[in-house]
Design a binder for these strands. Structure first.
Length: 167
DNA sequence: ATTAATGGATAACTTACGTCA
DNA sequence: ATTGACGTAAGTTATCCATTA
């Protein structure tokens, strides 16, 4: 360590070396107690607290400044932890929902042949094409509600299961 | 057991900005 | 509208002390 080499002397720039005060237990206790009551001090409170603690008012002032800063830092750290946990739970929820979507998509695609909504005849899947707008292969409006229907109920009306003009 | 290096806590300082008379 | 005094927040520096290799 490079400290204490010029105790009681002046450093090269003519300034006396900065000395750090160590507060006693009792001083800390009183300051903390006072901080609990009020996070800021008016000049009168500062003066009387300084007298009580046998410190300079400036030292009391600095202590309160630093104490407010520590308090805020702690609060910020706690909020950060909370947000991290929240993010984690949202990520997990998102994973579950993605899995569910995959399962529902698998059910919806079903077997390789489908029934034509027009002729009620089975059609080979290879003759069908995907509508780029609604991403549906064919109309299933005449089928009973399924899990897939439940999902699509959440889709905006323009993407309803009724065949659009483009389909 | 001793010692130098290191990191955390915090007192003290500096700067920028807002408020008010 | 301008100005100077004052208080505070934010950022930085310096010091002390405990831990560790």
């Amino acid at each position: 360590m490079a400290s204490n080499m010029e105790d009681e002397e002046e450093s090269s720039n003519g300034e006396p070396p900065r000395k750090k005060l160590r507060l006693t237990k009792e001083q800390s206790r009183l300051l903390e107690e006072s901080f609990r009551q009020n996070h800021t001090l008016n000049p009168k409170q500062k003066e009387s607290l300084a007298m009580q603690l046998k410190l300079r008012p400036r030292q009391v002032e600095v202590w309160f400044q630093n104490r407010r800063a520590r308090s805020k830092l702690k609060q910020t750290e706690m909020e950060c932890e909370y947000l991290k946990r929240w993010f984690g739970s949202l990520t997990e929820q998102n994973r579950r929902l993605q899995r569910e979507v995959e399962e529902l998509r698998a059910i919806k695609v079903g077997p390789p042949t489908v029934i034509s909504p027009h002729s009620c005849e089975p059609l080979p899947a290879s003759t069908l094409s995907m509508c780029p707008r609604c991403e549906r292969v064919t109309s299933t409006a005449d089928k009973p509600p399924s899990a897939a229907a439940t999902l699509s109920a959440k889709v905006p009306p323009t993407q309803s299961r009724q065949p659009s003009a483009a389909c």
